[in-house]
């Protein structure tokens, strides 16, 4: 279990992570989302003890990473963005070295390395020099490294980068398998991956927590309205007229249609009944409906919406702006 409270990291005047708090319990996969430079990697580095936080506490498996780093680090497996490989070593030797520095008992090393190599299917390259492996294999060796020592907590920074589609599916399956006895933090900006694998997602932007919820709740949060994409063959003026006269259609926009003599619209409907009504009305007015598609608010929309929100924390410039506005309004009053 990982418990993070009020985590803050400053580099000089730049605040990379601002007052972040969250927990990851056992048998749970937390997706960690954020645009570039949001502070994802910084947070990962702090949880793994590579970087000390400016303030706040990180408790990993019951041990505080600042006060008891050795015990805490024993329960963490970390796959950084760039897999930390010694490229002139052979795969097996490298894993043996990792087992050594992760304080795996000597008698268990071989057994554990074998298990990990089986899991990631790198048995066939175990005697090859890492330098000569393809990107996908390197990534998997990096993943194998994180599993050595049987850590309770896995922190994976973009684990599927550089893998081919089959391998991506395999690795995702592996991550789901690992969920049984691990707490996992998965950092990625591939949104499908997060929605395919994770139970919960955490979205940060500019170092601040924007949302932390289950995937379903996050989708619901964006919009409770129903969005519909509809392609219609008929008289455009008449169609728009219908749209304007139907109350349950809240909004409509025309989009380019890829079919000749047809018009496509994106509709926003107030409720489920509105869908039936609209379609019935269109048919009764002699418009032939070629295609109807219900768009569900997906993680992508949530992501875009939340990461573009302005920061909650006020900077000194906001204060200056407010003062300026006040002065302006006072001057206006006097005039």
């Amino acid at each position: 279990m990982v418990e993070i409270k009020n985590l803050t990291k400053r580099f000089g005047t730049i605040t990379a992570v601002n007052d972040l708090s969250f927990t990851v319990s056992d048998n749970e996969i937390l997706g960690f989302l954020g645009p570039n430079g949001a502070g994802k990697t910084t947070t990962m580095n702090m949880i793994t003890g590579c970087l000390p936080p400016t303030s706040g506490t990180i408790i990993v498996n019951g041990f505080d990473i600042s006060n008891n780093p050795m015990e805490a680090k024993k329960s963490i497996g970390y796959l950084p963005e760039i897999p930390p490989l010694y490229t002139d070593m052979k795969v097996y030797e490298y894993l043996k070295f990792v087992a050594g520095i992760k304080a795996v008992p000597r008698s268990k090393r071989n057994e554990q390395i074998k298990l990990v190599m089986d899991r990631l299917k790198i048995n066939d390259v175990s005697k090859r020099i890492i330098k000569n492996l393809s990107k996908g294999y390197k990534q998997r060796v990096g993943f194998a490294q994180a599993l050595i020592g049987d850590p309770k907590i896995l922190i994976l920074d973009e684990p599927t980068v550089g893998l081919d589609p089959n391998q991506i599916l395999e690795v995702r399956k592996l991550i789901k398998d690992l969920k049984k006895d691990h707490a996992i933090i998965l950092c990625s900006h591939i949104l499908q991956e997060i929605s395919a694998v994770c139970d919960k997602a955490l979205i940060i932007a500019k170092g601040e927590l924007k949302a932390l919820d289950t995937l379903k709740n996050l989708s619901d949060r964006v919009s409770s309205n129903i969005a519909l994409t509809i392609t219609i063959d008929g008289d455009k003026v008449k169609i728009i007229d219908i749209f304007n006269n139907t109350k349950s259609i809240l909004d409509y926009t025309e989009i380019t249609s890829d079919k000749p003599n047809a018009y496509a619209f994106k509709l926003e409907l107030a409720n489920d009944d509105a869908r039936k009504q609209t379609i019935a009305k269109l048919i009764s007015e002699d418009c032939s409906i070629l295609e109807v598609q219900t768009d569900q608010a997906n993680l992508e929309q949530v992501f875009v919406k939340l990461t573009k929100q302005p920061s909650k924390k006020r900077t000194i410039y906001d204060v200056f702006d407010d003062i300026e506005k006040n002065i302006d309004s006072d001057e206006n009053k006097e005039a």
Partner: peptide, 14 residues
């Protein structure tokens, strides 16, 4: 340079 520092720093070795 090669990013392996993170491995050493995140391992239980002082």
């Amino acid at each position: 340079k090669s990013g392996t520092e993170t491995l050493l720093l995140s391992s239980p070795i002082s």
